[in-house]
Design a binder for these strands. Structure first.
Lengths: 246, 246
DNA sequence: GAGTGGTCTAGACCACATT
DNA sequence: ATGTGGTCTAGACCACTCA
């Protein structure tokens, strides 16, 4: 089974991208160029370009052309309190090129709802017990990079500033602490997969861009879960980090 | 800009999959069925099926058909020593369906090499100082699920069992401890992206399956990095977990 | 052998961006 | 206006699986 032409073309273009011959931002040879160069039908050239786009290496813009994408990740340090200077020795393999632009929030909504089934089990609630839901979207320079949905049991947080759009200084964890529920431990579970259409739309994702799903469980001193936070991240924009003792 | 037919067809099939009407393992309507049902050309029907495959929802097999994929993740608990029973309260949103089959290793190689540039900086080594490289592939029931490459400075580990294929009881961390380099802290950095062709081949990945990259840095009591471990995981097979204090 | 997915072609029309 | 990518068609050949 010989390698089909569209793959050979894709392989060649990929090689040129990974070798740096085609740098981030550069325009990749278009359909017409490939048709002329390799003597194939336009559809075949398109398919080759589609492979690169699906791999997340390029980004096509109608009317303009196809360009090499760049990877400038935001460093998310989940355990940053532990990241003492003494452990800073040893560079990161990826850390060269970090996106340091400030992050903002748009479309924040805070509502009281019956608890979704899958969250109820995690919070130890009855199926439709009320929860406060905090929904937000994070942007970097107008570009959405993360969606976040927090669930907090209504019977624990009712009447607190947690139910207000602005929970005040220190955020909801400071308010939880004031209620004697101060989270003392977190558990984060992480998956990666291709986005569903609505996720792709909400994050403005290019083709071939996977998402990272993080679910954070916050526990109080009693060992009770007090918050579940579901996050959806544009994988191409994030470098995630955890530190922990042996 | 009306939604093109191939997307409408894909949307409908996706709905049926996500609603559970088409369960994991079920056969999805094929090209011919879609051509007949929607009165479109075969290529258009194929493209619709291609969308689902690229989203990782289905898996096509030549001669057989296209089936709904299943997600049975392996739970990787990076900080499992911390996962005391007291914090076990609160179920996971995803934990319902874990893959509990045993993991095995094949194609283990241990060699001494000049240190690759990107690793040298992380280990604080001169550009081509020698390192021992431990390369392995992990399987679950014959299916590759993870690739792992460990780098250890030769001047630290030369002569120890770390340079042998079988490092003995407790693995390389036990040997490092005996050398007074026992890792006391770890840092893990995580990314997700689409696989390169060689990664896809080594892991036997289906189309539309992203990979998760993990780089683990192990630090000795002195704060010196003693190991860098680069891992490539089949994202569809893993659920990653970290626990940490507030 | 019938049915399935995988690839290719030649030609067509459209939407959009740049000049 | 020209060139770019996005979609569709009708027909073809191949490789594989399954009954």
């Amino acid at each position: 089974m010989p390698t089909p032409p569209y793959r050979l073309i894709a392989d060649e273009l990929r090689r040129r991208i990974l070798s740096g011959e085609l740098a981030p931002g550069d325009t990749v040879p278009g359909e017409n160029a490939l048709v002329a160069q390799y003597s194939v039908a336009a559809e075949t050239a398109r398919k080759a370009l589609g492979v690169l786009a699906a791999e997340g290496l390029t980004e096509a813009r109608r009317g303009s052309g196809t360009r090499v994408r760049e990877f400038r990740p935001i460093l998310r340090q989940a355990t940053k309190r532990l990241a003492a200077a003494q452990w800073a020795q040893g560079r990161s393999i990826w850390q060269a090129d970090l996106d340091q632009r400030p992050m903002s929030v748009d479309s924040l909504t805070v509502t009281e709802q019956p608890c979704p089934e899958h969250v109820a089990a995690a919070l130890g609630l009855e199926p439709t017990e009320p929860v406060w839901v905090r929904d937000r979207r994070y942007l970097v320079e107008g570009q959405a990079v993360m969606l976040s949905t927090s669930y907090l049991p209504a019977r624990l947080v009712a009447g607190s500033a947690i139910t207000a759009p602005d929970p005040g200084p220190g955020g909801i964890y400071a308010r939880l602490a004031e209620l004697g529920l101060g989270p003392v431990r977190f558990r984060e579970q992480v998956r990666a997969r291709m986005p569903l259409p609505d996720e792709a739309a909400a994050l403005g994702l290019a083709l071939g861009a996977p998402v990272v799903l993080i679910v954070r469980y916050a526990y109080s001193e009693d060992g009770l879960p007090v918050e579940v936070n579901e996050m959806v991240l544009d994988a191409s924009r994030y470098l995630l980090e955890w530190e922990f003792p042996a």
